[in-house]
């Protein structure tokens, strides 16, 4: 099982979390599109990296996500800042944990509803 660190809720601060990439093809075309589409639903600034220290990649840019070329078995570190950062982070970690399978709609709604 993969073991994401639960995002630590802090107001007005950076939220961080990490998750193991388990789907077969890594952060490939469709997973990248799903990830960026989800990230774009949030106002928060969301980035990810191979190490907790960066370098950081914009999680809302499919071009940059594809340049990153994350493979199966890598651990992705996420960080988010902004009003809905905590929700954004948990939604994204959950998407990666589910191996990017569809039906992210219910669990990943931004919190204006």
């Amino acid at each position: 099982m993969n073991s994401p660190c639960d995002p630590v809720p802090k107001t007005n601060a950076m939220h961080t979390g990490s998750v193991l990439l388990t789907n077969d093809v890594g952060l490939h075309a469709r997973p990248s599109v799903k990830l960026t589409q989800l990230a774009k639903r949030f106002g928060a600034h969301i980035e990810f990296a191979r190490a907790a220290t960066g370098p950081w990649v914009d999680a809302k840019s499919p071009v940059k996500v594809m340049r990153f070329k994350a493979a199966k078995g890598e651990t992705l570190h996420f960080r988010a800042s902004g009003a809905d950062a905590a929700d954004a982070l948990s939604a994204i970690v959950s998407l990666v944990q589910r191996g990017f399978v569809a039906d992210d709609e219910e669990s990943a709604q931004p919190p204006h509803g």
Binding site: S32, V33, T36, Q37, D58, S61, P62, V63, K64
Partner: peptide, 14 residues
């Protein structure tokens, strides 16, 4: 779905 990947890249200013 394949074409949507291309759309996602084209929409991205990067």
């Amino acid at each position: 779905e394949i074409l949507e990947f291309q759309v996602a890249l084209l929409e991205d200013d990067a």
